[in-house]
Amino acid sequence: MQDSGKNIIIAGVGGQGILLFSNLLSKFYLKRGYHLKISDVIGLGQRGGGVESHFRYSAKPVLSPFIKAGDVDYVISFEQTETLRHLHALKEDGVLLTSTYELTSTSVNARLQKDLPECKTEIIKRSENTKFIIEPNAHKNLDFDINKMMNVVMLGYYAELRNYPHDEMIQIVRENVPAKFVEGNIKAYEMGSQIAREELVAEECVAIRC
């Protein structure tokens, strides 16, 4: 394998399954013999706080558990306020995968702080990095709740983007999620990889309503 390793920040809010995402991904890279360091930063409060996972895989032992700003190859974010919090950390050729899902910050709800004056998706689209944007509302379906399974949708998307074998990834999903959620998760995975295939063919992001 030519890939000597990557630095990934996985971001979102509590309850979005960020830790499951990094756990599933870690199984894949471990099987390939990489060294890993995964550092989870979870805020106070059970739900709705920002969560970030610094995920590093490397052919050589990983040193720092935190990735320096400017050293990030991929930002994978399930919530777009959190996307903006981490966007600057990407390398110049770093890639962004983000959902347009948004959970308004408590401080904004309580009017303790002003939100950004314009639509966050528009700010994200102005970034010079390569970016892939998924709008969950455009993919609502009866098989699974996309807002709850965006993590696995994103896993399928990422795997397609990296050209990883889906069979292997699906097997990892199968082995690591509770039995009653396996089918939904596999459908979510397949939807993610399908969206990525279509977009990679079109070579541009879907138009996002603001």
Partner: peptide
């Protein structure tokens, strides 16, 4: 963090500026 050490001991390292005005999240 690595960034904090670099800022003081590797002065010519490139700097990154976060997006301004991203609201923080209070515990809830």
């Amino acid at each position: 963090t690595p960034d904090v050490i670099e800022e003081k001991l590797v002065p010519d390292a490139p700097k990154r500026t976060p997006q301004e005005g991203v609201p923080f999240r209070l515990p809830v």
